[in-house]
Amino acid sequence: MLVLLGFVLLARQRQIEILRDLQQEGAVSVTELAERFDVTDETIRRDLAKLANGGQLVRTHGGAVLSESAQVDAPFAVRQGANSDAKRAIAHAAAELVRPGDVVAIDASTTALELAIRLPPAPATNPITVISNGVGLIQRLADRPGLRLISTGGELDRTGACFVGSIAEATLSQFACSHALLSCRALDPRRGAGEAGPSHAAIKRLMLSISEQSHLLADSSKLQEKAVCFFAPLDRFTTVVVDDGLDEGRRGELERSTARLLIAPRPSAAPAATDPSGA
């Protein structure tokens, strides 16, 4: 039984890595994957068949390509490994916006999870209250002192590892927050922050409406992504926090579209976040 469990876990980890490769490259080869994971071609074919049955890829002769649905919304575990340096830099800069005693609404994005684990310490007498629809975020912070955690509950979106729907929205509507800290599926200087579907957009729109200040956390790769729907224009946010991977043209577009653009340097760049607006 233990051997079988180990086999299942190894297979699932392989499949997550295959999806990461597809997100980055767009296509994979059976032969190359078999060499990488030191398994047989038949083992990789079984992995690809399982992912194809779940609608996450399309089989091709000798490999697979990413399905259209997977391009819209990749599983949380896959997204968590993408652009990790940029996400950590953004999270570090955004965490400095939060103070003890604040009530913060945080979404279920992978960038928001990086932010949550970097929240500043707070005394038990003046904790930071975190309200989130993220499953992983609540689990990750469950044992941390100085935080008061509130989960929205609701309908579980397994792909996004989050709660959505009317129950989650009803929970959020009861609160008044100091800050909303949100990410997005896609970033468009003209249309704003976009999401993979209406249920995710509705949660983020509601978090914005109940918060005094709102901050969008988006790594520069989001400018290349596409969204199904948009939940807020960029000037709706108090601050837009991005990494330093922007070219000058894109940076200029964002500066013209936002109230305040905060550039968070990745580890290879300067050690601290900079604010182009001088604020």
Rank of each mutant, 00 (worst) to 15 (best):
residue 202 A to F: 07
residue 156 L to I: 04
residue 169 E to W: 00
residue 201 A to L: 07
residue 174 Q to D: 11
residue 166 S to Y: 03
residue 207 M to H: 07
residue 162 C to L: 04
residue 168 A to Q: 05
residue 183 S to L: 10
residue 161 A to Q: 15
residue 201 A to Q: 10
residue 154 G to M: 03
residue 183 S to N: 06
residue 152 T to E: 02
residue 175 F to L: 09
residue 175 F to T: 00
residue 147 L to V: 01
residue 176 A to G: 12
residue 200 H to N: 15
residue 173 S to Q: 15
residue 188 D to L: 10
residue 173 S to A: 12
residue 168 A to S: 14
residue 171 T to V: 07
residue 188 D to F: 00
residue 196 A to V: 09
residue 191 R to S: 04
residue 187 L to R: 01
residue 169 E to I: 07
residue 183 S to D: 09
residue 169 E to C: 01
residue 193 A to K: 01
residue 184 C to W: 00
residue 172 L to Y: 04
residue 166 S to V: 06
residue 169 E to D: 04
residue 148 R to H: 09
residue 181 L to C: 11
residue 158 R to I: 12
residue 186 A to N: 01
residue 179 H to S: 13
residue 146 G to D: 12
residue 163 F to I: 04
residue 146 G to H: 12
residue 187 L to T: 00
residue 190 R to Q: 13
residue 187 L to P: 14
residue 180 A to M: 05
residue 186 A to F: 06
residue 170 A to I: 00
residue 195 E to D: 15
residue 153 G to V: 00
residue 177 C to A: 15
residue 149 L to E: 10
residue 168 A to I: 01
residue 193 A to Y: 01
residue 202 A to Q: 11
residue 203 I to P: 05
residue 152 T to R: 04
residue 149 L to V: 06
residue 147 L to G: 04
residue 179 H to N: 15
residue 208 L to C: 08
residue 190 R to L: 15
residue 178 S to A: 12
residue 201 A to S: 12
residue 172 L to V: 14
residue 176 A to K: 14
residue 159 T to V: 12
residue 195 E to N: 14
residue 181 L to K: 10
residue 199 S to E: 10
residue 180 A to W: 03
residue 181 L to G: 14
residue 185 R to T: 11
residue 146 G to N: 11
residue 157 D to M: 11
residue 201 A to M: 13
residue 149 L to W: 05
residue 158 R to K: 14
residue 208 L to R: 01
residue 196 A to W: 00
residue 182 L to V: 04
residue 203 I to Q: 05
residue 167 I to H: 12
residue 195 E to Y: 06
residue 160 G to P: 10
residue 155 E to I: 03
residue 156 L to K: 00
residue 162 C to V: 05
residue 153 G to N: 13
residue 206 L to N: 00
residue 191 R to W: 04
residue 147 L to N: 02
residue 195 E to L: 10
residue 159 T to N: 15
residue 182 L to M: 13
residue 179 H to P: 14
residue 189 P to L: 02
residue 192 G to Q: 03
residue 187 L to K: 07
residue 147 L to A: 06
